[in-house]
């Protein structure tokens, strides 16, 4: 599957074949990236359910997982959050906002030299715990969290 995907991407960047294939209906748009969006995890309505859906139900607190976020966010629509894992062999990081309608914000897998370090900007509906979960190559999960106070929400109208 991965080899096929790489071939498709390489072909696309070289010649725009992908665009032609899409136009001709040979390839459904959902097949363009061979990742499976984890619908169950992203549509889970509370953090424990979302963590369970990514397989991280039993994550241990770790000081080596650093979550940097503001104490107070004046604009809940753009909350800068940095997650950096000093845990050896971290292969992926997921970020959750406990009080959002759907707590899972994003998950990142790292390979080929990418450091377990990511900067994102989150939407937060209200003051909440922001939580990072790191997964190591031996299948263990670690977590770190921080409360961010939101003075104006990012999800309302």
């Amino acid at each position: 599957m991965d080899i096929l995907r790489r071939t498709v991407l390489k072909g696309a960047s070289a010649s725009g074949v992908l665009a032609a294939a899409l136009g001709a209906g040979l390839l459904k748009p959902t097949q363009a990236l061979a990742l499976d969006w984890n619908k169950a995890a992203f549509e889970a309505k509370d953090t424990p359910a979302a963590m369970k859906a990514v397989g991280a139900a039993s994550a241990a607190e770790s000081k080596d997982l650093k979550l940097t976020a503001p104490d107070i966010a004046e604009n809940g629509a753009v909350v800068p959050v940095d997650v950096s894992s000093g845990i050896a062999n971290t292969i992926s990081i997921a970020v959750f906002v406990d009080k959002n309608p759907y707590p899972l914000a994003a998950a990142f897998n790292f390979s080929n030299g990418a450091m377990a370090d990511v900067a994102v900007r989150l939407k937060m509906g209200q003051t909440s715990i922001v939580r990072a979960v790191a997964k190591t190559s031996d299948g263990k999960f670690y977590t770190a969290s921080k409360e961010v106070k939101v003075t104006a929400g990012g999800c309302g109208g």
């Binding site: 753009v78 759907y102 899972l104 914000a105 994003a106 080929n112 030299g113 990511v118 989150l122 939407k123």
Partner: peptide
Amino acid sequence: GKLVVQSETGTAIST
């Protein structure tokens, strides 16, 4: 030419 980051994102990512 090497895949370094692969990500899934939800609605809580800013505009």
